[in-house]
Amino acid sequence: MKKFIIAIATLLVLSIFLSACGSSGSSGGGGDTVTLKLAHSGSDTHQYQTAAAKFKGLVEEKSGGTIKVEIHGNATLGSEAEVIEQVMDGTIDMTTVAADSSLANTVPEMNLFGIPYIFENREHVYSKLDGEPGKKLLSLIDEHNMKGLGFWEVGFRHLTNNKKEIKTPADLDGMKIRVQPAPVWEAHMAALGASATPVNFNELYSALDQGVVDGQENPLPSIHSMKFYEVQKYISLSAHTYTPAVVIMSNNTWDKLSDEQKTVVEEAIAETTKYHRESLAEEEAEIIEELEGQGTVINEPDRAAFKEATKEVKDAVKDQVPAELIADMEQH
């Protein structure tokens, strides 16, 4: 009898242990709590982080706490290229990355966003990203064991340097400009007479500070959040390209989510997108005022001259970006 009681007690303890293990998993289904690991390369105030934090709040609220989001910023889990690889193999659940950076080396069509002056303004951009051209681009990500969930904001990109005010393309002649590691940017800088120098985003401040490069190009919120203005005296509002932050999830993770969980994630992505666009538009005007007050020289260059000088850049990526996709995006 005693042995029988001990055996029953042992089975009961084992049952409780297995039940506890089953309720702490990080995959969907069965009522388990899902923990999504989201990595990015931006600072604690970068656009990536503000969007990720908003997404986290929305997902956790909408799911009643059954979906949790862990944010790993500041490239703590690797550069954008490294994180993309980890999302593809399922080591990391999610990331948000610049479309025309390392992602373009996996999904060549993303080089589209490095083509100068194909977008006239924000309204033009959003109509395309939210329409069929944007859906087509996201679908291409699915071919690489990743799911494209949407487009958050990085913004229109501007030139900075620490040598002189940039008014025309000729002012860039011979300058070393940091670019994103994608083919389109080599052609872009060559058209302006500058030397394209790829540098990981999380290493850019140091490269600017040490003179490895003379300048770089990024949206105002990036320049501000990463404190590039501390080592760059001049900002030229060239608005030469627009970069979206593509939100990507590993298919390994997506396939484990229940239909209800997928709906929660998609709704949170869409709401974050709207919030992000509105908040960053307001922020840009404040950044200009703040930086000018600190002595940064900010000017409006001859955009028509820049557009003319770079009009052949699209030809450099014709093998990566279908002409019809470019035409779809350009049509206003």
Score class of each variant (00 low, 15 high):
Thr197Gln: 03
Pro198Trp: 03
Asn200Glu: 08
Phe201Asn: 10
Tyr205Pro: 03
Tyr205Val: 00
Ala207Met: 03
Ala207Thr: 01
Ala207Ser: 14
Asp209Gln: 09
Gly211Tyr: 03
Val213Asn: 00
Asp214Lys: 04
Asp214Phe: 03
Gln216Thr: 14
Leu220Thr: 03
Pro221Ser: 07
Ser222Leu: 06
Ser222Met: 08
Ser222Pro: 01
Ile223Arg: 00
Met226Phe: 13
Met226Thr: 07
Phe228Ser: 02
Val231Pro: 08
Val231Gly: 07
Gln232Ala: 15
Gln232Leu: 06
Lys233Gln: 14
Leu237Tyr: 06
Leu237Gln: 10
Ser238Val: 11
Ala239Leu: 08
Ala239Met: 10
Thr241Arg: 02
Thr241Ala: 10
Tyr242Phe: 15
Tyr242Val: 10
Thr243His: 13
Thr243Glu: 15
Val246Trp: 02
Thr253Gly: 00
Trp254Leu: 05
Asp255Ile: 04
Lys256Glu: 14
Lys256Asp: 14
Leu257Phe: 09
Gln261Tyr: 07
Lys262Glu: 09
Thr263Ile: 03
Thr263Lys: 14
Val265Cys: 04
Ala268Gln: 05
Ala268Phe: 05
Glu271Tyr: 07
Thr272Trp: 06
Thr273Cys: 01
Thr273Tyr: 08
Lys274Thr: 15
Lys274Trp: 02
Arg277Ile: 13
Glu278Ala: 15
Glu278Ile: 07
Ser279Cys: 00
Leu280Asn: 04
Glu283Gln: 13
Glu284Met: 11
Ala285Ile: 10
Ala285Met: 07
Ile288Ala: 09
Glu290Phe: 06
Gly293Pro: 13
Gly293Lys: 06
Gly293Tyr: 08
Gln294Glu: 15
Gln294Leu: 15
Ile298Lys: 09
Ile298Ser: 11
Asn299Met: 05
Glu300Pro: 00
Glu300Asn: 13
Asp302Ser: 09
Ala305Gln: 14
